[in-house]
Computed example of a mutant assay.
Amino acid sequence: METTTASHTTTDHSKIQKWIEARNGRPSRVKGAKEGGVLRIDFGAPEETLEEISWDEFFQIFDENELAFLYQDRTESGDTSRFNKFVNRP
């Protein structure tokens, strides 16, 4: 049985968007990156090295690069986790 601290991987756009928005995150990419961009999630105050992009553009880059979203729902202490990483699809 998986615990809530376990990490999960998905390619489901609505699940990814819901997870990010629940943590007040914004779809972003690294400024100046080539080939569509390097995806990131921007939490809190906007980071200077990132530029916010639309969900459509975010998921276009996500799919074109055949990425999956690795994430965690809760930390070991039970807090909401922001742990996430973009990985290659299996």
Rank of each mutant, 00 (worst) to 15 (best):
M1F: 06
M1S: 11
E2D: 12
E2Y: 13
E2T: 12
E2G: 08
T3P: 11
T3C: 10
T5E: 11
T5L: 12
A6F: 00
S7P: 00
S7I: 04
H8Y: 07
T9M: 09
T10M: 05
T11L: 06
T11N: 06
T11Y: 03
T11Q: 12
D12P: 05
H13I: 10
S14V: 08
K15C: 01
K15S: 10
K15W: 07
I16N: 00
I16A: 02
Q17C: 05
K18S: 15
W19R: 01
W19Q: 04
W19P: 01
W19T: 01
W19Y: 09
W19F: 08
I20A: 03
E21Y: 06
E21A: 08
E21P: 00
A22S: 15
N24C: 11
N24P: 02
G25R: 04
R26S: 08
P27R: 02
S28Q: 03
S28W: 01
R29E: 07
R29L: 03
V30C: 04
G32A: 07
A33Y: 05
A33S: 13
A33F: 04
A33C: 06
K34L: 11
K34E: 15
K34G: 09
K34Q: 13
G36T: 05
G36N: 01
G37V: 04
V38R: 02
V38N: 07
V38S: 03
V38C: 08
I41H: 00
I41L: 03
D42Q: 00
F43S: 01
F43K: 06
F43P: 02
F43T: 06
G44E: 08
G44Q: 11
A45C: 10
A45F: 07
P46R: 01
P46I: 04
E48G: 09
T49G: 12
T49N: 13
T49I: 14
L50F: 10
L50V: 00
E51A: 06
E51Q: 10
E51F: 03
E51C: 05
E52F: 01
E52T: 13
E52H: 02
S54M: 04
W55A: 00
W55F: 05
D56K: 09
E57R: 08
E57G: 04
E57L: 10
F58T: 03
F58Q: 00
Q60W: 10
Q60F: 09
Q60R: 14
Q60Y: 12
I61W: 00
D63V: 11
D63C: 06
E64H: 07
E64Q: 11
E64W: 01
E64P: 07
E66L: 09
L67A: 02
A68P: 01
A68T: 07
F69E: 03
F69D: 02
L70H: 04
Y71E: 03
Y71H: 05
Y71P: 00
Q72T: 04
Q72C: 03
D73S: 13
D73C: 10
D73G: 11
T75L: 14
T75P: 08
E76N: 14
E76F: 14
E76G: 14
S77M: 15
S77K: 15
S77V: 13
G78S: 14
D79A: 15
D79T: 14
T80R: 15
S81P: 04
R82Y: 11
R82K: 14
R82D: 12
F83W: 08
N84S: 09
V87W: 05
V87R: 02
V87K: 13
V87A: 00
R89I: 12
P90R: 08
P90W: 06
